[in-house]
Design a protein around this nucleic acid. Sequence first.
DNA 1: TATTGTTATACTCTATAACTATA
DNA 2: TATAGTTATAGAGTATAACAATA
Lengths: 151, 151
Amino acid sequence: MYHISVDADEAAADVAEGLLRLTSLVQAVYARVSERHGLTPVQARLLCVLLAGPRGMAELAQSFGVEKAALTGLMDRAERRGLAARSAVLGDRRALQATITETGRQAAAAFHAEVGAELGQLVAHLTPREREQFGAVMAGIVVRCRPFGPG
Amino acid sequence: MYHISVDADEAAADVAEGLLRLTSLVQAVYARVSERHGLTPVQARLLCVLLAGPRGMAELAQSFGVEKAALTGLMDRAERRGLAARSAVLGDRRALQATITETGRQAAAAFHAEVGAELGQLVAHLTPREREQFGAVMAGIVVRCRPFGPG
DNA sequence: TATTGTTATACTCTATAACTATA
DNA sequence: TATAGTTATAGAGTATAACAATA
């Protein structure tokens, strides 16, 4: 039905290499934009989550896929830099909420906009139709690896 | 000529989000396969480069985009684990070459094959034609950001 | 003088284990 | 007992600055 290349392995290796190179490029963009705003990549990610509202420490740790203790350290450093703060939670005196400060909000908003713009530049040479197809393929790949949604 | 969406910004944001999610997924695969072979992601990358032959320390630092001192630390740890070694360079008594050991070679070869296979799985649901197009788009994006070749 | 590589120091990010306080 | 979060400790990865040896 399809044309099967005799170099099927080679074609697969090419896709793998493409994925690795693309990943490396996106990581570099992310790191460069973070640095422009005085943030580490992980701090940028943390602040972007907190832009949507306060989050519990355990909740953040789980959504980042790190241990609670690692999150304590992340928040310590973010707090020391005036980017985020901890606040009490009504009704559970064990719990703390991570919140973003005004300084953090401004940095995160600017970071988010610039990352979006720079990543958009990467696909600016494609036609709208190509971009749409490319986006659909990426979404399809991601969805198949997160069968229960973007936790 | 093309249909321009009134939500062009939104579409661009979608592509950016897709790139970030795909990157996160590929990084996770890379980290998981590395760990399976007792390697950190950076060690895996270092060893895969050394699979092709010895490299000078400064050369490696530049191709990794890190300072010389960082590479000294990387090689110290790789050497301590028996994955790589330093050897003298004939004709320049300042220089050292990083080489891979047999242990390192086996780990790197297995790692490389498995990463290729797992990344291949990510696009296994696509038709050959879709895979080819996807690969071409990725290659095009990367090429535009490395106008002087893959360093 | 320039280049190669190392050492010293400091910081971020992460894991594990032991701990406190509250539920 | 279980959960939320912290502390202590260790290790990887990185940067900067100062240094040694060689070109």
